[in-house]
Simulated scan of single mutants.
Amino acid sequence: MTVAHITGAARGIGKSIALRLARDGHDVAVSDLAVMAAELEATRKEIEAIGVRAVALHGDVSDPESVRRLVAETAGQLGSLDVMVANAGIAQTKALLEVGPDEYDKVHAVNGRGVFLCYTEAARQMIAQGTGGKILGAGSIASHKGFALLGVYCSSKFAVRALTQAAAQEWAPHGITVNAYCPGIVATTMWEEIDHDLGEINGVETGESMKEMAAGISLGRVSTGEDVAKLVSFLAGPDSDYMTGQSVLVDGGMIFA
């Protein structure tokens, strides 16, 4: 039985990924901030109901000691760490000229440093185990294209793409593949917040910004967490064994790269 850890799994895309990997047969550790404890515990119970082992852990991906503990507790309680999904992330919607250094650092601490810490701590554990593994990071359409009013967020997601390429090359000799999944517009709380903030900036009603962006989706709808989880299932499983260093779009046809 393989063991997967998904960060930011209390709700949204992370929860969908956790449930899908459980249905694929992985034992699952889910983690999120302590303030998300109730939602995270609900996720853990749903995973256990599928019939696999599950643990819920609290941690902050921007903190090195916290990430070390999350990896150690996953391996200690479930026996190993075979799949790491660095999913936790935050958004920021703001004109670049209005972004302060602290605001910039806050986004990159989670979306950039957080992925770096999850990647490296997971790799150390997998190398010590000697059995290879799968490391996955949360990219975005913003890993492939910069968007106005989302500049800092985009820069953090471009960082994920670069880290993924470098890590894939460095850890291939250890049998570890590293890939990123890159969603577009997803029906989650984060995208509701982006829509709200864009509406305030542009002076339009809530829902209008999302509607305008969704008009550019070839398949004609925004995605669900389950749409993203299907790609993660592939990247976490044996069918992707010969694939590494890729940042794969799953956006319904918005960005073509």
Rank of each mutant, 00 (worst) to 15 (best):
K45R: 15
K45W: 01
E46Q: 14
E46T: 10
E46D: 13
E46C: 05
I47E: 01
I47L: 01
I47K: 05
I47H: 00
I47F: 06
I47P: 00
E48K: 09
E48P: 06
E48F: 08
E48N: 03
E48L: 06
E48G: 09
A49D: 09
A49M: 07
A49P: 01
A49F: 09
I50E: 03
I50L: 12
I50C: 03
I50M: 06
I50N: 02
I50V: 12
I50F: 03
I50T: 13
I50G: 02
G51Q: 04
G51L: 05
G51A: 10
G51M: 04
G51Y: 00
G51C: 09
G51T: 05
V52G: 01
V52M: 00
R53Y: 11
R53Q: 15
R53H: 13
R53M: 11
A54L: 07
A54D: 01
A54K: 07
A54G: 09
A54E: 00
A54T: 01
A54M: 02
V55F: 00
V55R: 11
V55T: 12
V55H: 02
V55G: 09
V55Y: 03
A56C: 01
A56V: 02
A56N: 05
A56W: 03
A56D: 02
L57I: 09
L57Q: 06
L57T: 07
L57V: 01
L57Y: 00
H58I: 09
H58C: 12
H58F: 15
H58G: 15
H58K: 14
H58P: 04
H58L: 14
H58S: 14
G59N: 03
G59H: 02
G59A: 04
G59I: 06
G59D: 12
G59Y: 00
G59W: 01
G59C: 08
G59S: 10
D60Q: 05
D60N: 11
D60G: 07
D60I: 04
V61P: 07
S62T: 10
S62G: 15
S62R: 02
D63P: 04
D63Q: 10
D63T: 05
D63R: 06
D63G: 08
P64E: 14
P64K: 13
P64R: 11
P64D: 11
P64S: 13
P64A: 13
E65H: 13
E65P: 09
E65N: 14
E65R: 11
E65L: 13
S66M: 11
S66K: 04
S66T: 03
S66V: 10
S66R: 07
S66D: 12
S66Y: 02
S66Q: 13
S66E: 12
V67K: 03
V67S: 10
V67N: 00
V67W: 00
R68E: 13
R68L: 13
R68Q: 14
R68P: 06
R69H: 11
R69F: 15
R69G: 04
R69W: 15
R69Y: 08
R69I: 11
L70G: 12
V71M: 08
V71N: 01
A72I: 06
A72P: 11
A72F: 03
A72C: 09
A72N: 09
E73V: 13
E73C: 01
E73F: 05
E73T: 11
E73N: 13
T74S: 11
T74P: 01
T74R: 00
T74I: 12
A75F: 03
A75M: 08
A75T: 02
G76C: 10
G76V: 06
G76F: 09
G76I: 00
G76P: 08
G76D: 11
G76W: 03
